[in-house]
Amino acid sequence: MPSYRCKLCDEQAEDVALHLTERHGMNNERELFLVVCLIKGRKLAPVMQCPVPGCSVGKSSRLERHLDRIHRVDNHQRARFMEMAHRKAIVYELRALRETFPDPPMVSDIDMCHCVLINMTADEVSRAVTSPDGFRVISVKRHKTAAFFGRAKIALSPQEYTWLTDTIRHRSVASDYCFCAAKGNRCMQLLSQFRTAWRHVGLPGRPDFMMIRNSLVTHAHTRLPPRQRQYLARAMCHNTQTALQYYVTDQTTSLARSSRSLALRAVNALKRK
């Protein structure tokens, strides 16, 4: 029997449904069905949304033919786009299910935005490039929109970078990932940890990463000139206009560093009012 990698914890499992039920307490039948389809790569619907940015066709019942004839993709690109389309269809159904406040409640967070930090590896941290002013810029290869935006860039101050490397150096678990769970696999609970820290410093509400991302985009749009908005959007792997090419060159270290300053500038504009 083949084994599959769980999208929730990265563990291998032969009986996916049993693993999700016993390991993660997934008791909602609709959620269980959708997540099993995602893990096993099952096609959810005959009509899927074309994942190529800028495509005006939208949904297609013959997506592979559409990708070949309209977008002239090669085999590697076709496989990548088909995987993206399958995931997008399932995520859409999971998000629709979440909006109904189902009972039993959902336990997965696949339909929620995952930050780049989840996939950041310890090796990528060690290979950080130093900008002229001493900031360390980490290039993360694996993330949701890597096909369109290249490696994600994370700029850290010297003190922040030291905190991160010390955490990796002194932890008791061996793992390739920068942030890992008890068994060394990816830590999929970063949002929970973030909210715990948020409450610890006395801040109200229950924010998520998407809310913060959207806030930065909103403030940048209203308070930064067009050129600087493009720099910041590029750093966030969020295009100000529809992307027209499949692959782009990586953002430079200097632009990644300046993008952090632009984000702070956009948000700090509120304080000066």
Rank of each mutant, 00 (worst) to 15 (best):
P2A: 15
S3F: 11
Y4A: 05
R5S: 11
C6A: 10
A13S: 12
E14N: 01
D15K: 10
V16T: 05
H19W: 06
H19F: 12
R23W: 06
H24C: 01
G25N: 05
N27W: 06
N28C: 04
R30H: 08
F33A: 13
F33W: 01
F33V: 04
L34M: 05
L34P: 07
V36D: 05
C37M: 15
I39R: 03
G41P: 05
R42N: 00
K43C: 02
L44V: 03
M48G: 01
M48P: 00
V52L: 04
G54L: 11
C55L: 10
L63V: 10
R65C: 02
I70K: 08
I70F: 09
V73Y: 08
Q77C: 06
F81N: 04
E83Y: 01
I90R: 03
E93T: 01
M106C: 08
D109W: 07
D109Y: 09
M112K: 14
H114T: 10
C115G: 15
V116Y: 11
L117C: 09
L117V: 13
L117S: 13
I118S: 06
D123P: 00
D123H: 00
V129E: 15
V129Y: 02
P132I: 06
D133H: 09
R136A: 12
V140N: 06
K141A: 07
R142M: 10
H143P: 06
A146V: 12
A147M: 15
F149T: 15
G150A: 12
R151S: 13
L156D: 02
T165C: 08
D166W: 01
R169A: 13
R169W: 02
S172A: 13
V173K: 04
Y177M: 03
A181I: 00
A182C: 00
G184P: 10
C187D: 15
S192E: 09
Q193S: 09
W198V: 00
R199L: 02
R199G: 05
V201E: 09
V201N: 01
G202R: 02
G205E: 06
M210E: 14
M211C: 05
M211R: 12
V217E: 07
R223I: 02
R227N: 00
R229P: 00
Q230W: 02
Y231I: 13
Y231H: 04
T240I: 08
Q241Y: 12
A243K: 08
A243W: 00
Y246N: 10
Q251H: 00
L255R: 12
R257C: 11
R257G: 00
S258G: 00
S259H: 04
S259P: 00
A263K: 05
L264V: 12
A266F: 08
N268C: 10
